[in-house]
Amino acid sequence: MTSVSIATQLADWRDHALTLENEVKKVVVGQDKAIRAINIAIFARGHVLLEGGVGVGKTTLLQSIARGLGGAYERIEGTVDLMPNDLIYHTFLGEDGRPKVEEGPLLRAGEQLSVFFFNEINRARPQVHALMLRVMAERHVNAFKKEYRLPHMLVFADRNQVEKNETFEIPSAARDRFMMEIPIEIPEDRELRKALMFDVKFQHAERLTQQVQGGVLAYDQLNAFSDVLQSHIRASDVLEDYALDLWQATQSPAAFGIQLDSVDVNRLIHTGASPRGMGMLLKAARVHAWLMQRDSLYPEDIHAVFHEIIAHRLVLNPMFESRRTQLSRELTNQILASVSVPARAKAA
């Protein structure tokens, strides 16, 4: 492929990506940052965990994204009695009164599946988590004596961070499979809040998502384009040093002079970011650079996705787990504020 055609391809896809963003922004207000993050995850081919309270628009957001992305959209609700087989198949009595078996939501659309939405994933049992982990990593599953390939599938899951009853905490290994954990928060802007309350168009989620232009992206070409994009964006040695410092700071924050008001950082971190997590960080940062019409990575690109990619990967000591959301966000903020370009050794 020539450089001209690559440039054209990059520009065309960028237009589509920005169109998708704008389409979703028309129906989901006050979530621009989350929309940009999901857009990045789509092009970085990463799964997304949404975190937020009840009724903040997570489902509407995902349905809008799924409509713009094209392909099939499947959804399952996490419940305490949900078993792995419920994702694979379900049984029912047919019209003829005989039992029948049909493919479950994970298999039903086959290779056309572009978005699989797992609502309230933390209500599902660990057995279900284990199945999802495998599918997310391998993008295929064996059932009915054959292999179902899901090459274009992105998993969007959400978890309710408020309720803890009858929930199963997602283990760190499972969290690490998600490229991003995106917080969905109620907009601060007073006008937006007023619109959400009084504008009747926001009262009908299904009708709202229908306003999003469908099939903005060719979902089945995203994998190939993602490879092109990733190989096109460069990282300089200065930026590599910076990223390494960031990684080290997630493991030994105190070494970078990072302090938190309420806790001792030396006792806070059990394990820092994983190599897979750092790989995903750079992958997402490259997508951000591409969206910003650049062909090289800037620190801004890393900053743009650092919270979403790193915060949920940090393994905190158990005594701090109950405050995970607050502490991990606080720590990532401090890391970005304290670790800087040039690297410490070069600045000295």
């Binding site: 800037y298 801004e300 900053h303 304290s338 800087s340 070069k346 600045a347």
Partner: peptide, 17 residues
């Protein structure tokens, strides 16, 4: 890098463009 470092020192953290 030196200029960037000086900006960072003034800003108290990494200053981006």
């Amino acid at each position: 890098l030196m200029m960037q470092h000086a900006f960072n020192q003034h800003y108290g953290q990494q200053l981006l463009g």
